[in-house]
Simulated assay, not measured.
Amino acid sequence: MDATILSFLLLDGLQNGVIYGLLALSLVLVFAVTRVILVPIGELLMFAPLSLVWLLEGKLPGTLWLALALGGAWALMARGRGVLLPLAGGVGLFLLFLLAKGVPPLAYLAAVLLVVYLGVATYRVFFQPMRGATVLSLLIMAVGLHVAYQGLGLVFFGPEQFRPAPLLAGEVVVGLSWQGVLVLLFAALSLMVLYLFFRFSLFGKALLAAAENRLGARLLGIHPEEAGMVAFGIASLLAAFSGLLLAPLINAAYFMGFMLGLKGFVAAILGGLASYPVAFLGALLVGFFESFTSFYASAYKEALVFLLLVPALFYQSLRARAVEE
């Protein structure tokens, strides 16, 4: 291996690792607040660029009707003034999509808001009614939603792969495009914003309180259900932006989100589904490990990446046993 190949592998690992890191942060946040392992986060990530492609071609994507259907169910389940949020959001989303057909700036905005609305509606319709369920029951629901959303993705967009045009064309250096630079800058900006949000904002501190002690947060006037909606909203927002920035580099298809989400899950497990910094560092480890194994053993790179789960789970098992003793 010479210096050129090494630089390619390092850049590729860094670029993939920061995306896995954002997904890992989303998974840790959602799990901490709601005890839900958000398995369909990969589908939410892919829905953004696929919906964008449809809008740029002047067509309304099927994901819009899915979001509106879930919004309608959310409105039926809500009471009092709670009905206004899903109804107003659904109407505004529909009007935005009508205006965004063939208009790139509005199309990007519509794709992001669609995924955020869909993520929050998913929590409100499927997970909030199960707030007293076990983690296993929530996981079964999450896996079912992953299967359903992936199947609907095939129905909505077909089996083809699509590559949206990059926001910035050209290369900075060999092996790193301007689009890749955007991915890195977005990851850095996201980390800074999340730190400031949780460190200084009242909503961020309330979210951390709900994640730390749900009963104590409720006694202090913090509603865990609303915290869950905020957590799903933040996770969906990160997934939407990640998908829009990553799709011009790797293509977008209905089936591609699951592997991305699964590697983000590996990183989250490395952080014990509890530590945000360790989860992000674990994601960088996954990205670099995947990059180098694809060079030395490309046929086994997926299996080797998931092999990282074994020592992580073994460590968590020993740690849990030590706490019990």
Rank of each mutant, 00 (worst) to 15 (best):
S7I: 11
N16L: 12
G21R: 01
L23S: 02
S26T: 01
M46V: 10
A48Q: 04
L50A: 13
V53M: 12
L55T: 10
L56V: 02
G58T: 06
A69C: 04
G71S: 14
G72F: 05
M77Y: 05
R79I: 02
R79T: 13
L84H: 06
A88R: 02
L96D: 13
L99C: 06
A100Y: 12
G102P: 05
L109R: 05
V115E: 12
L118C: 08
G119F: 06
V125C: 06
F127A: 07
L136S: 04
G144R: 06
G151S: 09
L152T: 08
L152Y: 09
L154A: 14
F156H: 11
F162E: 15
R163V: 14
G175C: 01
G175Y: 08
L176E: 10
Q179H: 15
Q179G: 09
G180Y: 06
V183R: 11
A187V: 10
L194F: 03
L207S: 04
A210D: 04
A210F: 03
R214V: 12
R214W: 10
V230L: 15
S236R: 09
L246F: 12
A247Q: 12
P248Y: 13
G264E: 11
V266N: 04
L270G: 12
G271T: 03
A274E: 15
S275K: 05
F280S: 04
F280G: 03
L284A: 04
F292E: 15
F295Q: 07
S298H: 09
L309I: 03
